[in-house]
């Protein structure tokens, strides 16, 4: 089985750096502008792309991504456009993993089998469903696993040791650590807390652990990259798209290049 996600994490690890995972909302500001923005992410050095599926009621998102959702829907983005964007991305970038991230209702409105089939056909590697906790796995998990698409689970500061096995059960691709108890793009977690949490998660799973929520600068990314297998940056990129609209691609590329540069080890650190 070709597994772009594990291959990419392995490549990054071999290069001694964390994977850079970047998020944008599909169809923001409109469907026509999205391919250039996705290409800019790759050109800037993103290792894995998270493509947000817009939803009218993005309850786990802060203002930046919420506005992106509304811009996208306002310009007429439909689910069929998102799968077309994914399939075209797959054709242009055969090796870059693509993950869909969003809410259960748009994913499941035509049934989980339909959604899983569409993901598979479009070359989507994984899915993050924000409001489908392990307790509701039956809604989405079996269909995705059947189609060979990773269901990427979230762990949070409130996921205690007793609960962690339930989260890991059925998780694949990577484990997404939400570093703050909150919504996207707002607060920033203390680095010491992130270090401790990632250590705890890595002890419990062989899956790569990526850290997101509130990561906005190359410096933060670098600090997290020293301990985690992946660093997720979303709202800061979405803000750039919000400011520059369909001319955002070069600005996005510049910012992602700065993030990527911060994750790349400049001097080989050797164990003393």
């Amino acid at each position: 089985m070709t597994d772009r996600l594990s291959t990419r994490f392995a490549t990054c690890k071999a290069q001694g750096r964390a994977a850079l995972i970047t998020f944008v909302t599909a169809g923001d500001p409109d469907v026509a502008a999205t391919p250039a923005i996705l290409d800019a992410l790759v050109a800037g050095g993103a290792d894995i792309i998270e493509l947000g599926m817009p939803f009218t009621d993005p309850m786990a998102d802060g203002p930046a991504i919420e506005l992106a959702n509304l811009r996208s829907l306002g310009s007429g983005t439909k689910t069929k456009h998102i799968f077309a964007l994914a399939a075209e991305f797959r054709a242009r970038h055969p090796d870059t993993p693509l993950v869909l991230m969003g809410y259960a209702n748009p994913m499941l409105v035509r049934g989980s089998d339909w959604f899983a089939d569409q993901c598979k056909a479009a070359g989507v590697d994984g899915v993050i469903c924000v409001d489908a906790p392990p307790e509701e796995d039956a809604e989405i998990g079996p269909a995705l696993r059947g189609a060979g698409v990773h269901l990427i689970r979230l762990a949070t500061p409130t996921t205690d040791t007793a609960r962690l096995p339930a989260v890991l059960q059925g998780a694949s691709g990577f484990l997404y650590y939400v570093s703050v108890a909150g919504i996207t793009g707002k607060q920033q977690a203390a680095q010491a807390n992130i270090d401790m949490a990632v250590g705890r998660l890595k002890a419990a799973t062989d899956l790569p652990v990526a850290v997101g929520f509130g990561v906005r600068t190359p410096e933060q990314a670098a600090a997290i990259g020293r301990i985690a297998d992946g660093v997720v940056v979303g709202s800061a990129i979405v803000d750039i798209v919000g400011s520059h609209g369909d001319a955002a691609a070069p600005f996005v590329q510049q910012f992602v290049a700065a993030l990527s540069g911060a994750l790349t080890p400049k001097i080989q650190e050797t164990a003393a």
Partner: peptide, 12 residues
């Protein structure tokens, strides 16, 4: 019915 919430809220 069910419990379709973000992981952060599940323990609570």
């Amino acid at each position: 019915g069910g419990r379709y919430v973000a992981e952060t809220l599940m323990p609570l």
